[in-house]
């Protein structure tokens, strides 16, 4: 058996691939959190629950309407985004004048409701979601076997992340968005409808979570609790990366996923806590986060 640093390469690359996939989800979710935080100054605790809702939306679309993976990839994020728009319009928008912590508490309540309701209806066990036909099978890369679907998840989330980065940093709409983050009053005075922009930003941010949910459905099972522990890790990712930069969120997400994968090979007992340990170290050395600014 081929080994590297005394570890069988099969196991090493297998875990690194898993780590990369987890990292893709961390990146997608922390990106959504960063976009929302930039605009609304709200930490969206419901992000993990909405990721779960995205996965369930895909599953329900298939169960009840026979709608397959590819349309669901578009429809489910759209539904989650719409839910987000309603949530922002009816509830979150009332809290902007108050302390930011109220936004956290409100979305925490929403997360409990969503997770509790889905658990009540569908139980705590997972529902299987099939891999779409076009992505079955896998590639032999010589040093490891890569299932097609997993490769697709990494590519798709990278494209989404980079697309979001491009839209925010390089387009006119993105410029408005960044301007409104800096100074909403002034941007409003220029005739741009900032409240609508805020609403749409929230909708877009949670739609990213919904998309991550659909991508995750065939890999992990569709489970009411799939988002509840993930969100805490994503929070740690956000603290490590700092929410100042979009690219920072993406890089940190992927990097920590890989690190977690590596820990699973080297010292499996620590794999659950490695992200939190990294967070503690980063806080000691660079409290603002790797890519963050003090605000």
């Amino acid at each position: 058996m081929v080994t590297l640093f005394g570890i069988p390469t099969q196991a090493l690359f297998g875990q690194l691939l898993l780590g990369l996939i987890n990292g893709s989800f961390y990146a997608l979710l922390s990106l959504g959190l960063a976009v929302i935080f930039g605009m609304l100054n709200v930490i969206n605790f419901a992000h993990g629950a909405l990721y779960m809702v995205g996965a369930f939306a895909a599953w329900l679309l298939m169960q009840h309407f026979g709608i397959g993976y590819w349309p669901a990839l578009l429809l489910a994020p759209l539904l989650v985004g719409l839910f987000g728009v309603v949530l922002e319009k009816t509830m979150l928008s009332r809290l902007y004048k108050l302390d930011h912590l109220y936004g956290l508490l409100l979305t925490f309540g929403v997360a409990l409701i969503l997770e509790g309701a889905f658990r009540h209806w569908y139980g705590a066990s997972g529902q299987p979601y099939p891999i779409p036909d076009a992505l079955r099978g896998g590639q032999n890369l010589g040093f490891m076997f890569l299932p097609n679907y997993r490769g697709w998840v990494i590519v798709a989330s990278l494209i989404t992340c980079l697309g979001t980065w491009y839209a925010i940093e390089r387009t006119r709409l993105g410029a408005y968005l960044r301007a409104a983050t800096e100074n909403p009053t002034l941007v409003q005075a220029f005739g741009i409808n900032v409240p609508v922009m805020v609403t749409l930003t929230y909708g877009f941010g949670v739609a990213l979570a919904g998309l991550a949910g659909v991508l995750a459905a065939p890999i992990y099972q569709v489970n009411p609790l799939m988002g509840s522990n993930l969100i805490v890790v994503v929070f740690a990712v956000v603290v490590i990366g700092g929410m100042g930069s979009i690219l920072g969120a993406i890089v940190t997400g992927l990097g920590l996923g890989l690190l977690e994968g590596l820990a699973k090979v080297v010292y499996p007992e620590a794999s659950n806590i490695v992200v939190f340990v990294v967070m503690a170290i980063v806080l000691l050395i660079k409290p603002a986060g790797l890519f963050g600014r003090e605000r």
């Binding site: 935080f37 806590i273 503690a280 806080l283």
Partner: peptide, 25 residues
């Protein structure tokens, strides 16, 4: 000592993450 290095929302997230570590332990 770790959490007071950041303020507001970050404080909440740090304490949450550290407590999750205790959960896994």
């Amino acid at each position: 000592a770790l959490a007071i290095r950041r303020q507001g929302i970050y404080f909440a997230m740090i304490t949450l993450a550290l407590s999750q570590m205790v959960f896994f332990l």
